[in-house]
Amino acid sequence: MKDITILIADDEIEISQLVSVHLQKEGFQTVVAENGLDALERLKKHSVQLVILDIMMPGMDGFEVAKQIRETYTIPIIFLSAKTSEYDKVQGLILGADDYMTKPFSPIELIARVHAQLRRSLTFNQQNQQPSNDMVYGELTISPEKRIVQIFAETIDLTRKEFDILYLLARNPNKVFSVEHIFQSVWQDEFYEGANTVMVHIRTLRKKLQEDKRKNKFIKTVWGVGYTFNG
């Protein structure tokens, strides 16, 4: 893991140091930022493979930092915050975070989630190096190797999770996937309370696919079962 660098952004230096120590014990390199602006600057200067991000920071909060990161980078983002409301968790996921943990936290669980996100990110990067054909469904084109989705040749901006959900459904047209199956396939984690997370991502994905303007929807809800792609 010597070639893996993790950025930790938290205005509580004790938290940053605690997280950094545990990550370094796992063989990771760490970069620490004390606020949002500092985090963005360090991200430009270092080759970072994952970001652990607090929300309540001076100058620029974690939500805005995540939003700006997603404009350029596809690296995993894990929120580590004292904000425990469902609204904050959903907001973080909508803005492009891959995971959300609340304080106080278990360092062991955090390390496990870091490994899970990195494993998944590295796996997709390896898959993207393999040749693959574009998937075309009417006006919708999905390019798995480039992770690009276009409607009428115009690229739409999807988060990593939104793309992964769409790709999972689209490469298995007309097959019905349960919410639990989608969560475990995309997040690669135990289901627990992942139903709301999946539904939020499906809702934003549909909006970006302009489903409200289309009579024949790409993503269909099979009530009581899950979701399917209309291929």
Results as ranks from 00 to 15, higher is better:
Thr84Leu: 08
Ala116Ile: 07
Ile75Asp: 00
Arg113Lys: 10
Asn125Cys: 09
Ile142Trp: 00
Leu80Pro: 00
Glu145Met: 13
Thr74Tyr: 06
Phe152Asp: 09
Glu139Asp: 15
Gly138Met: 04
Gln130Pro: 05
Ala97Phe: 05
Ala112His: 10
Pro131Val: 14
Ile94Arg: 14
Met101Glu: 05
Phe79Met: 06
Ser85Tyr: 09
Arg119Met: 08
Asp98His: 02
Tyr87Gln: 15
Lys89Glu: 08
Glu86Arg: 15
Pro144His: 01
Gln127Ile: 13
Ala153Lys: 09
Glu139Met: 11
Met135Ala: 14
Tyr73Phe: 11
Lys103Gly: 03
Ser132Glu: 12
Asp98Leu: 04
Asp99Ile: 01
Gly138Ala: 07
Ala82Cys: 07
Ala82Thr: 06
Thr141Gly: 03
Phe79Arg: 01
Pro107Thr: 04
Asn125Asp: 12
Ile111Lys: 04
Gly138Leu: 04
His115Trp: 08
Lys89Tyr: 07
Tyr73Glu: 08
Val114Gln: 00
Lys146Cys: 09
Thr141Glu: 04
Asp88Tyr: 11
Glu109Thr: 13
Val149Asn: 00
Gly92Phe: 02
Tyr73Cys: 07
Ala153Tyr: 03
Gln126Tyr: 11
Arg147Cys: 07
Tyr100Arg: 07
Thr141Cys: 08
His115Cys: 05
Ser143Lys: 08
Lys83Gly: 03
Tyr137Ala: 13
Ser81Leu: 00
Ser121Cys: 08
Asn125Gly: 09
Gln91Ser: 15
Pro144Val: 04
Ala97His: 03
Asn125Pro: 02
Leu93Ala: 03
Met101Cys: 06
Ala116Ser: 13
Thr72Glu: 14
Ser121Asp: 05
Thr74Phe: 06
Val136Leu: 12
Leu118Met: 03
Met135Ser: 12
Leu118Arg: 01
Arg120Ile: 10
Pro131Gly: 13
Ile148Met: 06
Arg113Cys: 02
Met135Tyr: 13
Leu93Arg: 01
Thr155Gly: 08
Pro131Asp: 10
Ala82Gly: 05
Ala116Thr: 08
Leu95Gly: 07
Pro107Lys: 07
Leu93Val: 06
Phe79Thr: 01
Asp99Gly: 05
Pro131Thr: 14
Gln150Val: 05
Leu122Phe: 12
Glu154Pro: 03
Pro107Trp: 03
Gln126His: 11
Pro144Tyr: 01
Thr123Leu: 13
Ser81Gly: 06
Ile77Asp: 01
Ala112Phe: 09
Asn125His: 11
Pro76His: 00
Lys83Pro: 02
Ile78Glu: 01
Gly96Thr: 04
Asn133Trp: 10
Arg147Gly: 06
Leu110Ser: 04
Pro131Arg: 13
Ile75Thr: 01
Glu71Val: 14
Ser143Arg: 05
Ala97Gly: 09
Ile108Arg: 15
Phe152Thr: 10
Gly92Trp: 00
Ile111Val: 11
Asp134Cys: 10
Ala116Cys: 12
Asp88Pro: 06
Leu80Arg: 00
Pro104Glu: 03
Ile108Val: 15
Asp134Ile: 12
Val90Leu: 15
Ser85Asn: 14
Ser121Phe: 07
Ser121Lys: 04
Leu93Asp: 00
Asp134Lys: 15
Gln130Ser: 12
Gln126Val: 10
Thr72Phe: 10
Ser81Gln: 02
Ile75Gly: 00
Phe124Ala: 09
Ala112Asp: 11
Tyr137Cys: 14
Ile94His: 11
Gln129Arg: 15
Arg147Phe: 05
Thr155Trp: 03
Pro107Glu: 04
Tyr73Lys: 08
Glu139Gly: 08
Asn128Phe: 12
Ala153Pro: 03
Gln127Cys: 11
Ser143Glu: 05
Gln91Asn: 14
Thr74Ser: 09
Gln127Ser: 13
